[in-house]
Amino acid sequence: MTQIYKTGIDVGSTTVKLVVFDENFKLIFSRYERHFSDVKAATIKVFKDFIEEYGDLNLELAITGSGGMGLAEVIDVPFVQEVIASSITIEKFIPQTDVMIELGGEDAKMTFFDNGTQELRMNGTCAGGTGAFIDQMAALLKVDANGVNELAKNYEKLYPIASRCGVFAKTDVQPLLNEGVRREDIAASIFQAVVNQTIAGLASGRKIKGNVAFLGGPLFFMSELRKRFIETLDLKEENIIFPENPQLFVAMGAALYEETSQKTATDLIHSLENDDSDSLIPQDTMDKLFENQAELDEFRTRHAKATANYKNLSEHQGAAFLGIDAGSTTTKVVLIDDEGNILYDHYGSNNGEPLESVINILKECLC
């Protein structure tokens, strides 16, 4: 009798996760791949990785995740809602869980397990307080998400930072950088902001107590983010559940889902490579700025009329007038003559050091 391997695919807002179980529910294969908005290519890649390692086996699978519904239509397999999928995995592998906290690329979830019942909570479409939010803040610190985690290990002081929206957070983080606050303290404060957003937004006053499980990519890869949760919730060691492969729990739930479809990995790749539908193309997008090249050319011609004249600074004699705009994130400098001709201009990031930025620009301009 041909063995069938239970398989789950989780297509999140930023990653594709693939898991494959054997008949004893032992995880024999897993992949965690960023899709960079190309779900089709990332999914094909993880299945090709599987074939290369295990061959073209028979798979019994389902799909979950915020971006999984379109993929489920293309390859014709059942779809299961992601909160339900993670609950399935929790009930099988860590049934002692009282509260589950999961952070994803652009969503956050919290589930309360109480005497056989479940209360599921999930954030809206805003990415505040999620993995994408941490990526945005990492860019301000000029590191990646792992770099934020490494910085946070050596923090000394926490500062209040809004995390409901990346725009709000930047208005808090940038002044701290400009004031010379230690990057280590800012990094830990960013994680604390995520914790505050998750607890306030999802728990909404309900007590988080008992055994708490931490799931999802950000909580798996970032030890200091978990630490901020643990300290804020004042959890004892025996109440902390950090299972093996927590970043894959949603995909594992899809594999364990009762309603599945049987296909081979080659069948799935073939369906994706020959798909000419728009199921995997984002539909809710903004209108185009220009319908064709002619409209773009007309726009550029119209705006080119409002330009200032430039003159070579090395050939200038007489008075010159300097203007400096030191903003929260950028420094703008312009030097003009008495007729308004531009002799020198600069527009660039201040890299969190506005004074040093202006000094370097003036040295370049006047020396």
Results as ranks from 00 to 15, higher is better:
167 V>Q: 02
10 D>K: 13
85 A>D: 04
292 N>W: 15
113 F>I: 15
305 K>R: 15
203 A>P: 01
303 H>A: 07
70 G>S: 13
91 E>S: 12
228 R>I: 00
98 D>V: 05
8 G>S: 05
303 H>F: 15
333 V>F: 03
261 S>F: 03
123 N>S: 08
232 T>A: 04
328 S>Y: 01
114 D>R: 13
230 I>S: 00
230 I>K: 00
302 R>L: 13
56 D>A: 11
257 Y>I: 04
44 I>E: 11
312 N>H: 07
324 I>S: 05
215 L>Y: 10
236 K>Y: 03
307 T>D: 09
242 F>E: 11
242 F>D: 10
120 L>K: 14
138 A>V: 08
187 A>K: 11
97 T>F: 09
64 T>W: 06
165 C>L: 03
130 T>E: 09
128 G>M: 08
20 V>K: 09
177 L>W: 04
98 D>W: 02
40 K>H: 10
201 G>F: 08
77 V>F: 02
212 V>I: 14
138 A>W: 11
135 D>L: 08
206 R>A: 09
193 A>N: 03
29 F>Q: 01
314 S>C: 03
123 N>Q: 01
333 V>T: 10
127 A>P: 15
214 F>R: 00
221 F>N: 05
147 G>T: 02
249 F>S: 03
197 Q>N: 15
277 S>Y: 13
97 T>E: 02
303 H>I: 15
57 L>Y: 06
121 R>D: 03
254 A>E: 12
1 M>D: 07
324 I>P: 11
113 F>E: 10
306 A>E: 12
248 L>Q: 15
331 T>S: 14
68 G>H: 08
330 T>N: 04
270 H>R: 04
121 R>T: 06
260 T>P: 00
46 V>Y: 13
82 E>C: 12
116 G>L: 07
284 D>E: 15
